[in-house]
Structure formats: C-alpha cells, structure tokens
Design a protein around this nucleic acid. Structure first.
Length: 135
DNA sequence: GCCAACGTTGGC
DNA sequence: GCCAACGTTGGC
C-alpha cells in the first residue's frame, strides 16, 4: 500500500464536497507528472486531502477506490483520473506552516514542489502528519 | 490580486 | 533542438 497527497481548491471541490458525493472522480489533472502518479495508485492506497489556495491545510484522509481510468472531463483520453472516497477527517487540520516548520517534513514534495497537485508521501511523513493531525 | 515557479507550445 | 512566449498553479 502506498501513500499520496492530493490537492484541490476548496472553493471548487473541498472535503465537504467529497463527503457529500461519496465515491468521486479526482478529475481535472492536466499535468504529466501528476497523471503518472495517479497511474501508479492502487485500490486501498491512502491519500491526504489538501486544501490549496484557500486553507492551505491537510484536512482529511481518503481511500483510493478505483485505479486510473480516462478522465471524463478531458477531450484527450491520455488524461486519466482515479476514484476516491473520504475515509476520515483530521481532528486537527495540519496547516502548511506547521509542516514547513517541522524538521522531519522538510523534504516533503508539498514543501519542495508546491505546484505539483498529485504527489507521493513517504511512510515516515505519513505517520508524522497523522500525529500532528491528532491521530 | 500579484507574481514567482514551473510546464508547455511553437517559431526558427 | 533551442528558447522565448505563454498559460497555469498556488503561496503570499
């Protein structure tokens, strides 16, 4: 099982939307690096849900519910998306500032490459975030 | 809302 | 195949 982090602007599609919708397509990704990570995802993998632009915090944990398939919102079938479902929200959202100040998280892709919207998370990073978030 | 960082496109 | 121009992302 692998760990990931997925970003979305809460004004467009936030945690509450995911909870309300149930299993949802993580569509709209138009970046090759991000797409390639989605192709690596397996059912049962876990992912953090990060609110970008507004919020700047990790708000919850998702399950990967289906592997990559063509993105119905894209004209070109080269763009794919996975399906996700909400697992559980964090008791305390983990804010970006907190992550940047944590010595064990300085190598996170979230910090090093802030523009990548789909990214891998190491087991050590995953565990640390869980602790910071109150699990 | 601004703009730096980054990715993509297209003329040469 | 280089690189300038352009578009997008996302922190601030």
């Amino acid at each position: 099982m692998a760990y990931w982090l997925l970003k979305s602007e809460p004004d467009v599609f936030g945690w509450d939307h995911l909870v309300a919708n149930g299993v949802s397509e993580w569509d709209g990704v138009r970046n090759y690096q991000a797409r390639n990570f989605m192709r690596d995802m397996a059912v049962g993998d876990k992912a953090f849900f990060y609110h970008s632009r507004t919020g700047l915090e990790i708000v919850g944990i998702m399950d990967i519910a289906a592997t990559a398939h063509p993105d119905s919102t894209a004209e070109d079938p080269k763009w794919v998306c996975v399906d996700v479902r909400a697992d559980r929200p964090f008791p305390n959202a983990v804010i970006l500032e907190q992550i940047k100040q944590d010595a064990s998280l300085t190598d996170m892709v979230l910090v090093k490459n802030s523009r990548l919207s789909v990214q891998p998370v190491t087991p050590a990073e995953w565990d640390r975030i869980l602790t910071l978030g109150g699990f």
